[in-house]
Simulated scan of single mutants.
Amino acid sequence: MSVRWTESPSTTDPSLLRLGDCPPSSITVRPGGSEAVFNAGFDGCSFRRLVTEDGIVFEKELTLMASSKVSSVISLVVCEYERPVDWSPPLYDPVTFHTSGQGNLLFHMNLMNDDLSGVAHSTTFSLGSLISITATVEQAFHQPLVLLLEECVASTTPKLAQDSRVHPIISNKGCLTESKNTKSRFLPRRNLSEIRLSLQAFKFAKGEEVYIHCKLVAWDPDVMDSGKKACHYDSQSRSWVLLDDPSKSALCTCCDTHCRTRRRRTMGKSLAQPVVLGPLTIKD
């Protein structure tokens, strides 16, 4: 969904606009007017989905945040399209979608198309191509949390066992180890409740069904340390870079050794959930 909001003359701070729980993708402020643009997938921003016999409707309010923490509704945003004959809810499609819940949190993980505008239509990738993956957490009325990918491995089985063949992707408390010698990297966030990964297709288990097993962690964004982070390797600077704040990339220096979470009295409790994405196939 793409939503463009304009106001002329400008009387509103566009950075305070929210589509569901998503901030604007871009903001433009000019003399005499302002504009906010939202680009959102239907699996994010807490969209409501209504499925009828003939159509599928996604809707959410466009709101303005207020200092009183009570948002005012500007407009109801609705996107409706004809329901395909063979359509079924993504929740029941194990090929490209995973959903699981913990408490009042709901975790999602998807294989996406190249521009991340929607769920991928194919699960077959050429060796060396880029695989786009998005993970999100719906927080309902929970305090704001940042979503992290703490561990990820590829395997040839939907369930991990001691004798499972595995290929490490993310390890050491959020280090994208696959980025050390490939083009794999984390992509800039659109909001804290989402993390996006561009993963270069690897040689592991070519031609076989591959499953990606990840541990998703929802965490207090104000309490980040070397044990709760998202880091990828930058080949130009030859150093590890922190996704959310490159100026604090010192938190990533342990990626080549061993990363630990520092114990603090103020540290909040992490909410973790294992997810499995797949199967997908990598071919020459």
Rank of each mutant, 00 (worst) to 15 (best):
H142C: 11
P188I: 02
C175L: 02
V153I: 10
N191A: 08
S179W: 06
L147H: 03
E151V: 05
P168N: 01
D93P: 05
R190F: 01
T96E: 04
K180Y: 03
T136K: 04
R190S: 15
K180W: 04
A140H: 13
Y81L: 10
E82L: 14
G103F: 07
L192A: 14
V73M: 03
V73D: 01
T177V: 04
L116W: 12
L105K: 07
L91S: 10
A135Q: 01
L116E: 14
T156H: 10
R165I: 06
A120N: 13
T156M: 02
S164A: 09
L192C: 02
N172R: 11
S179H: 10
S71G: 10
Q143E: 10
N172H: 00
V85Y: 03
D163S: 12
P84W: 07
K180L: 07
T134C: 00
T124K: 06
A154T: 09
F141H: 15
L148M: 12
D115C: 09
L187K: 06
L147P: 09
L130H: 05
L127E: 15
G118Q: 07
A154I: 12
I133T: 10
C175A: 02
S179Y: 11
V153E: 08
E151I: 07
A120P: 01
D115A: 01
F186S: 09
K159C: 03
H121V: 07
L176F: 06
G103V: 01
S171L: 11
R83A: 14
E82H: 07
H121P: 01
P94K: 07
G174P: 09
L91W: 03
R185G: 05
H108D: 14
T177M: 02
L130R: 05
G128D: 14
M112N: 08
L176R: 06
S126Y: 06
S179M: 05
A120I: 02
L105T: 06
V77K: 12
S75D: 08
P168I: 02
L91R: 14
T156N: 07
F141L: 12
A135T: 00
L145A: 15
T136N: 09
V146I: 13
S171A: 08
I74Y: 12
S155N: 08
T99S: 15
L187S: 06
Q143A: 13
I74K: 10
L130C: 13
L127M: 10
T96G: 06
T134A: 09
T99E: 15
D115F: 05
L76S: 09
V153H: 06
T123N: 15
S164Y: 01
E82Y: 14
I170E: 03
D114I: 02
Q139S: 13
L127N: 15
N113Y: 13
N172L: 07
T156P: 04
Q143G: 01
C175H: 03
T177Y: 02
T136S: 11
I74G: 14
G174Q: 02
Q102G: 10
L76D: 12
E178S: 06
K159Q: 08
T123R: 04
T96F: 14
P188Q: 00
P84K: 01
K183N: 09
F141S: 15
F97W: 05
L116K: 09
T96L: 12
P84V: 06
V85H: 00
L106D: 09
A154F: 15
D86H: 09
P144E: 11
L149T: 08
I170H: 05
